[in-house]
């Protein structure tokens, strides 16, 4: 693979984490405009762990997941009882608060005679663990996609279990879920934390891929793109968000046909698609029909 292809596939893998994170909340009936905040928490936590304290990346990634989950839990606690638009706005406010907190953090430490650590709006340089470990770009690509495959496998297992059915019921009819004795608030908090952990893991990998992060990386643009990926790809299956990422980054960006006005094409595509398929290309009905057909053939 060429260096360019490796870069594109690594980016597709990385951005899929936050798209999946948005998807998980969407199927539970909540739309978050704030997953980019938890992606940022993961990036900063993992960066601090490896670059400042020499902790190996796998351990740092676990720390980032824990931090992402904790942050999402704390944000969810007072906001998950809010309905639709209000929850969306509250998560947006939370993510912007996190971004400004990143701007305010100046926390550095001498490593090998040079200051390393988050330096406010100047960003956080020198997250070089991957280079110091001698990991080649194609190996890092493998790490990203192996982690993503693990996450996808977990989604597939959960969606086939009772847990998955409960999740979808929660999204479609929370009152029904409540009447069946499901503790809706608690359940949603758990989902929010899981989505936060997923975003945190993506952030940790992103920080190490890029070696440099800054608060602006985690602004509203990233969050809304992740939502758009999940929504255009489809809410019927976990491969929907991936399809969304592939359409934008792979097809529109990668092909370079629309260079210079890709946002106009992508924006229009999203708006028009939402008119005809408000739950995306691979929506529940499509997935159901597909399963049905496959079942009949075998």
């Amino acid at each position: 693979m060429s260096e360019y292809a490796i870069g594109v596939f690594t980016n597709i893998g990385l951005i899929s984490f936050i798209a999946l994170s948005a998807y998980l909340l969407l199927i539970a009936g909540e739309m978050s405009f704030g997953q980019q905040g938890f992606f940022g928490v993961g990036a900063y936590v993992a960066g601090v762990a490896t670059a400042m304290y020499g902790i190996p990346l796998p351990v740092a990634a676990l720390l980032a997941m824990a931090a992402g989950a904790a942050a999402a839990f704390l944000v969810g606690l007072p906001t998950l009882r809010l309905r639709g638009l209000y929850f969306a706005m509250a998560t947006l406010a939370a993510a912007e608060m996190l971004r400004i907190v990143f701007e305010l953090i100046h926390f550095q430490r001498e490593v090998e005679g040079e200051p390393v650590g988050p330096d406010g709006t100047q960003g956080f340089r020198g997250i070089r663990w991957v280079f110091e470990a001698g990991i080649e770009p194609q190996d890092f690509l493998a790490i990203v996609w192996a982690s993503l495959a693990l996450a996808l496998a977990m989604f597939v297992i959960v969606e086939r279990s009772r847990l998955g059915a409960t999740l979808r019921m929660l999204g479609e009819d929370p009152e029904l879920a409540r009447s069946l004795g499901i503790q809706v608030e608690r359940f949603k908090l758990g989902i929010a934390a899981a989505a936060g952990a997923l975003a945190g893991l993506g952030g940790a990998l992103y920080a190490h891929h890029n070696t440099y992060i800054e608060p602006r990386n985690f602004d509203i643009m990233l969050g809304v793109h992740s939502l758009a990926y999940a929504l255009i790809g489809g809410l019927g299956t976990v491969f929907g968000p991936l399809l969304g990422v592939l359409i934008d980054i792979g097809l529109l960006e990668g092909s370079r046909v629309f260079q210079g006005y890709r946002m106009i094409v992508f924006g229009g595509l999203v708006a028009v698609l939402l008119v005809f398929r408000p739950r995306g290309l691979l929506d529940e009905r499509f997935v159901h029909r597909l399963r049905h057909r496959m079942f009949r053939q075998t």
Partner: peptide, 11 residues
Amino acid sequence: PSMPMAHNVKP
């Protein structure tokens, strides 16, 4: 910086 991962400039 503001929209990381979405621009794949050919190295």
